[in-house]
Amino acid sequence: MSQPPLRRPDASMTLLTQLMDRPLDPGYAAAAARRRADGVPDGRPERSARTLAILVLLGLLLAAAALQTRGQSTTRIAERDRMIAQITSQDAVASGLQRANLALQARIEAERARQLDQQSQGALADRITQLGVLTGAVSVTGPGILLTVNDAPASVPAPGSDPRASAAVDNGRVLDQDLQLVVNGLWASGAEAVSINGQRLTALSAIRSAGQAILVDYRPLAPPYAISAIGDPNQLPATFSDSPGGRNLKYLADNFGIRYNLTTSTRLVLPASAGLDIRQAQPVTPPAAVTAPPVVTSP
């Protein structure tokens, strides 16, 4: 009649109990017992050179680990600042190049006009100028309307805040589609040349968005969006208000608080497009025929 061996109530947690009960390296007790058995008197082993060396090593480790962790964050911040500075400087460089490009284009235009004038090819010069106006290759001036579109007041972020921090869908923000509708409405209403924030629109222009920014010809725009359109200032505002683009703008203003303002102007100056570059398209007529003045079929 033997009793079953008593199990410890915490037998299933021996690992944890061992950890809690024996946190000290058993080597210390064993070494002490050995010393006692050998009859060696207890010295002051904590003052030995070995202990000192290990503690110096520990101090080095601690300092290195702390510096490592702090150094990582500072390098990250420095890296980000460097990137922002690079973006800003490259943006300035791109703007400068665009301006230089426009100036050079203007010089080419003037030089070509002079050459054609000398060769008394007046009709060809007129034709080129007219095509340049239509395609946006030359800067134009004339009467027209100035349409300013801006986000709803509430959606303008506080200065210094991260525009991407607000994850909520922002209905009071002008979208690329809205600008597309407005511009299409202006074309449909008889506008002859259109620019947004100084970016001339051509048949090859794209209005699209990347993140929350609206890009025109891959150049980001900042609100408010100033849309200049050259056309009859007496007739264009009314026609535009009746067009789908104008009606959509009114709907956005009534429902989402988007602000817009339409004024007429007697003289607007629209720059030439910077991105007019044909890479693939070829005219159907053989190039030899172009040297002769083309037959101008007036529209």
Partner: peptide, 23 residues
């Protein structure tokens, strides 16, 4: 290892060789 050594010191059984090896 250092806290173990400190405890062993207070227990009066500190041994520098054990400390170095455990560290």
């Amino acid at each position: 290892a250092v806290f173990g050594g400190l405890r062993a010191l207070l227990d009066g059984i500190f041994d520098d060789k054990v400390f170095v090896v455990s560290f």
